[in-house]
């Protein structure tokens, strides 16, 4: 992982030279070292050098108060809170849909095509409509963003849970029948615990999607805060360093969120003696 990071950094520095060179005002005789040092220290480069992005992150995070809009952690939190709320919506909606699909025969036939169709609509088209419609209803702020994040993230959860709830083999189901177990007991003691092994892969995808959803939702709303808003203003005013810093922060955020899922998975794994 470290070596991949190293290779990427070298490539990044190398790529910054030809991309930024046309906008430099250097005479033709300038050597490579002059060219490079100029290309890596521009104010508004096409591609900022890694150390510029790191410096931007560093000053933004450490030298501004947490509540200041100049601190990226503030924006990260705005986006993360919307993504987490969206993930909550996705979990409730995704699991409820899966239970419906598994238990109600007519829903199995009628609902699944709609669930799949919902994912073919580009989120960029849906997001402004959701924001506008909810806005006219007086709902603004976190909720519209969470709704869009949830809309993206419920799908992998539904798919995983449908598979998981159907995973018990005939013998395991027959066993329940010999105990004359109530349907609720079959759910809580067999289908649900079995489906957890199928929930986590879906959850990992859902976490990433909910972050994408929250960021995309911030683009059309003219949001003042959030990584999406930061990306938008960055590109609007040609502040490429700010833009890249926000991008890196978004990536870091998804890594943190995935670590959270991994920890939850670990806890379940531990309670089950080391296997899902």
């Amino acid at each position: 992982m470290v070596s991949v990071l190293g290779i990427l950094t070298v490539l990044w520095y190398a790529l910054a030279i030809p991309l930024n060179a046309p906008r430099l005002d250097l005479d033709e005789t300038a050597g490579l070292s002059t060219l490079a040092s100029a290309a890596w220290s521009m104010d508004r480069p096409v591609l900022p050098a890694p150390h510029q992005v790191v410096a931007e992150l560093w000053t933004s995070v450490l030298f501004h108060p947490l509540t200041s809009p100049r601190n990226l952690l503030y924006h990260a939190w705005v986006t993360l809170s919307a993504a987490l709320a969206g993930l909550g919506i996705a979990l409730v909606l995704g699991i409820a849909l899966a239970v419906g699909i598994v238990y109600v025969r007519t829903l199995d036939r009628s609902l699944m095509p709609w669930v799949i169709a919902s994912q073919t609509v580009p989120v960029l088209a849906i997001a402004p409509m959701v924001v506008v419609v909810l806005g006219t209803l007086g709902i603004t702020g976190l909720l519209p963003k969470a709704a869009i994040a949830g809309y993206l993230a419920f799908f992998p959860i539904t798919v995983g849970m449908v598979t998981g709830l159907r995973a018990p083999d005939p013998l395991q189901l027959d066993l329940m029948r010999t105990y004359s177990a109530a349907p609720s007991a079959v759910f809580t003691k067999l289908r649900w615990p079995m489906s957890l092994a199928f929930l986590f892969p879906g959850l990992r995808v859902a976490v990433a999607l909910s972050l994408v959803g929250a960021i995309v939702a911030e683009l059309p709303t003219g949001a003042q805060a959030g990584l999406g808003a930061r990306l938008l203003t960055g590109s609007y005013y040609g502040q490429t360093i700010q833009l890249w810093a926000a991008l890196v922060m978004a990536a870091l955020l998804s890594i943190v969120a995935l670590l959270g899922v991994a920890m939850a998975e670990r806890a379940v794994l531990h309670a089950r003696g080391g296997r899902l």
């Binding site: 066993l175 029948r177 004359s180 003691k189 067999l190 615990p193 957890l196 089950r272 296997r275 899902l276």
Partner: peptide
């Protein structure tokens, strides 16, 4: 069956792995 009159042992253990 509803009166839980019997215990049944299957060909495979059919244990719940979790």
């Amino acid at each position: 069956r509803r009166a839980r009159a019997y215990g049944y042992v299957f060909q495979a253990p059919a244990l719940y792995p979790w």
